[in-house]
């Protein structure tokens, strides 16, 4: 996933096109060598993907099977992460939940990146040209943004019903303005930058400048945002679960598991909330660090 994104983000037209992919790879290797946290985060990301694909095969128990005799047991050799109120194995549930959570995160980000990408290009043009495009894009994202995001998410899920699809759509909607706004602000600063003026002097059209000169310069920030959004997507689903609007039971999902377990913290059954909480944290953590690492790789300034 990292390599193609990096290739897309490379500035075109100025450097020799041959061997760019290889160069990116070696650059990536250099970054990872220099930054152990990034290396670790890529490894973690791979692990998460692995769990998402093979989770059901890896889990030692049926994640949905209750066993009330073994309910609320602390971590042991039989149940590494302990069991929950209904005696379900938490390790199995955490593993199986990876797929659903990754699905929510990736789908919602893909959706908003695609939508935000379209609006982003318009946004770049808007930030670049000013005028009426600027106003329309600005007002639309202002309108969404002016809503308290979590309450908006709650409202949409409450109105549409609490299914995975609706959680994905909701998450994409509330993150949409972040993309357009960042692009606008960045483009606004850059429109009078030397390289933009230079490109214009050499006779490039405005759209071409927006796409080839400004967009690549903004992409890193968007990638940083994308990684953050993956995390927020899961956190958002967890928050919805906390107030009862999340994924339907008995499906295993980290957010719901933390919400269920949070009722048991004060009574000392810390493992119910802790392990899914840790998985949730690790995933969000990993998305953020991966974003950081990607940024380092694609940042044109560091490539020179």
């Amino acid at each position: 996933m990292s390599a193609p994104a990096a290739a897309d983000g490379a500035p075109s037209g100025q450097q020799r096109p041959k061997g760019r992919f290889a160069e990116t790879l070696s650059h990536a290797r250099h970054i990872i060598g220099e930054n152990p946290v990034t290396g670790l985060s890529f490894a973690l990301f791979a692990l998460l993907l692995l769990c998402a694909v093979f989770g059901p095969l890896l889990s030692p128990y049926d994640p949905l099977a209750s066993d009330t005799v073994a309910a609320l047991k602390p971590p042991s050799a039989h149940h590494w992460f302990g069991t929950d109120q209904l005696g379900r194995d938490i390790l199995s549930r955490v593993l199986v939940a990876t797929r659903l959570d990754m699905l929510i995160a990736i789908l919602s980000v893909a959706l908003v990146f695609f939508a935000g990408g379209l609006a982003g290009v318009a946004g770049v043009a808007a930030g670049f040209f000013g005028g009426w495009t600027d106003r329309i894009v600005g007002r639309v994202s202002d309108t969404i943004m002016a809503f308290p995001l979590f309450v908006l998410a709650m409202g949409i899920v409450a109105a549409l019903g609490n299914t995975v699809t609706n959680i994905v759509i909701t998450t994409a909607i509330i993150n949409f303005p972040l993309y357009t706004r960042i692009v606008r602000a960045e483009a606004n600063v850059r429109r009078n930058a030397g390289y933009v003026l230079a490109a214009r002097l050499t006779g490039n059209s405005d759209t071409r400048i927006a796409l080839t000169t400004i967009l690549p310069n903004i992409l890193p920030i968007m990638v940083v945002q994308m990684s953050l959004t993956m995390g927020y997507a899961i956190l958002n689903a967890a928050g919805l679960s906390f107030i009862g609007l999340g994924v339907r039971p008995p499906a295993a999902e980290w957010g719901i598991m933390v919400a269920e377990g949070s009722a048991f913290i004060v009574s000392g059954e810390w493992w119910i909330a802790l392990f899914p909480g840790l998985a949730l944290m690790l995933a969000v953590f990993c998305f953020n660090l991966v974003g950081d690492g990607l940024r380092d790789i694609v940042d044109p300034l560091r490539r020179t």
Binding site: A65, S66, L86, P249
Partner: peptide, 8 residues
């Protein structure tokens, strides 16, 4: 939890 057990 009641409904989850009943469902199972």
């Amino acid at each position: 939890p009641l409904c989850v057990l009943a469902q199972e």
